[in-house]
Design a protein around this nucleic acid. Structure first.
Length: 425
RNA sequence: GGAGAGGUGGCCGAGCGGUUGAAGGCGCACGCUUGGAAAGCGUGUGUAGGUUAACCCCUACCGAGGGUUCGAAUCCCUCCCUCUCCGCCA
């Protein structure tokens, strides 16, 4: 949520920043400023009357104690009360409208990120590792998994529908190994505390991180309980500190969490229909940070490095991309994507997205901290995938495939797979 | 699901119709004391909004939302959450 004061005082620069997202919010900003001044006006009227009322009520108390008559004071308060009620109604009406508008306005993009409408303007920052060479035609992960009996997509469709998967035998084992490997690296080497949060969250949590109110159609909703299945661990983990006051010396706070993620994928019907790339349910190890404002830029770089460390340990070829203003998610001010090489597709595919949200989520979720001396301030929140396990599964199969259809297991993963060196028939 | 208890400031905890934004304690900040530290003593210390150049001032806030009253942290209603006991259950 943006600061209404910032909108009031710097309407033009806010408008310009938002326009970089390929959307025109100038009408909303105008409406907000009008509502804001209307609100302050009726608030002022109400407060003046309340002040008068408080004085009168105190007089009544005093007069009654002295045994004097207070009828005229009591009568005046009664009539004032009605007026107060009218102003208060106007005030809260304005406040509600302001809030509704603010909740639907995205974060301001970082001035340093590139302009652009869509992913074609994203900027490649660096490419890491070597593109694997094959002296045979590399298969895609679906063919490989079928050959080795790692997946059962047909039965998954029977059980649940399209975009679901059953991992089976070595496939299930490999998925579990990847999750454990990632959690171990993030907790033991990169200093994250592990959380295992709920997968169903309430409306307030979804609103704080920015999924609601605007993106409800992307979420799975429980019919009878007004709970939502999480689309990412970002939601429960960021909300871990909702409505809290943190201490300066406990920052930065770093959490990692494994959760399944549930997404309706509304509007992506034709895309990635084959295999594991785009599923309604997938697994992910997430990284979340709460930091002081002046640290957040540096902490984003460290977060990306922590996500990258997984790809490096597994010897996968990938690149780092900074998203342009038009391609970035609603709540983010700056986002780096990690894209892993997929030989069968012959391209890089997103396997992690790491973002700095500035104080945007902290405002929505009321997450503050207090410096040793000074007033409460909003924390900055960050998060990133470290990494998406389903897509990592795909990358591993495709990049480590052999001519006979077997999969070489990279050494870093072997302790999690009974020291086996390959998956084969 | 049934019965009961409770939710007060960064934390603990009093208050149960007017002088309470809220006693007391802890913590924190500053000062005194000390060779230094601890202890001790003193002073200060909630949040949000409005207004202001700033100080001041005003308003609201004692889980949330309504109600009663001239006046509510205190009384009433609804909801949420926590705890205890019973039931059910992986």
């Amino acid at each position: 949520m943006l600061d209404i004061k910032l909108i009031r005082e710097e309407t033009d620069s806010v408008n310009h920043a938002l326009s970089r997202r390929n959307a025109d919010f100038s009408g909303d900003l105008e409406k907000l400023n009008a509502l804001d001044s209307e609100r302050r006006n009726s608030l002022q009227n109400s407060e003046n009357l309340k002040s008068r009322k408080n004085k009168l009520s105190a007089d009544v108390g005093r007069l009654k104690r002295e045994g004097a008559n207070a009828d005229s004071e009591m009568a005046e308060v009664k009539s004032i009360n009605q007026e107060i009620g009218e102003w208060d109604e106007k005030t809260s009406d304005c406040e509600n409208q302001i809030r509704d508008l603010l909740l639907n306005i995205p974060n301001l993009p970082d001035p340093a990120i590139p302009d652009g409408r869509d992913e074609s303007s994203n900027q490649e920052l660096r490419v890491i590792g070597e593109r694997p060479e094959f002296d045979f035609e590399p298969k895609n992960h679906v063919e490989l998994a079928e050959g080795l009996g790692l997946l059962d997509l047909k039965r998954a469709a029977k059980i649940s529908g399209a975009r679901f998967a059953v991992y089976k035998n070595d496939g299930a084992r490999l998925l579990r190994a990847l999750i454990n490997f990632m959690l171990d690296v993030q907790t033991e080497e990169n200093g994250y505390q592990e959380l295992y949060p709920p997968f169903l969250v309430n409306k307030e949590s979804m609103t704080a991180t920015g999924q609601l109110p605007k993106f409800e159609e992307d979420l799975f909703v429980m019919r009878d309980d007004s709970l939502y299945l999480i689309p990412t661990a970002e939601v429960p983990v960021t909300n871990y500190h909702r409505n809290e006051m943190l201490a300066e010396d406990e920052l930065p706070i770093k959490y990692t969490a494994y959760t399944p993620c549930f997404r309706r994928e509304a509007g992506s019907y034709g895309k990635d229909t084959q295999g594991l790339i785009r599923q309604h349910q997938f697994d992910k190890v997430e990284l979340v940070k709460f930091v002081a404002p002046e640290q957040s830029d540096a902490e984003l770089e460290l977060l990306v490095a922590d996500a990258e460390s997984i790809l490096q340990k597994l010897g996968l070829h990938y690149r780092v991309v900074v998203l342009c203003a038009g391609d970035m998610g609603f709540s983010a001010r700056k986002t780096y994507d990690l894209e892993v090489w997929l030989p069968a597709q012959g391209c890089f595919r997103e396997i992690s997205s790491c973002s700095n949200f500035g104080d945007y989520q902290a405002r929505r979720g009321n997450i503050r901290f207090k410096r040793k001396t000074g007033k409460p301030e909003w924390v900055h929140t960050l998060n990133g995938s470290g990494l998406a396990a389903g897509r990592l599964f795909v990358a591993l199969l495709e990049n480590y495939q052999c001519a006979d259809g077997s999969i070489t297991i990279p050494p870093a993963l072997r302790p999690y797979l009974k020291e086996r060196e390959a998956l084969q028939q």
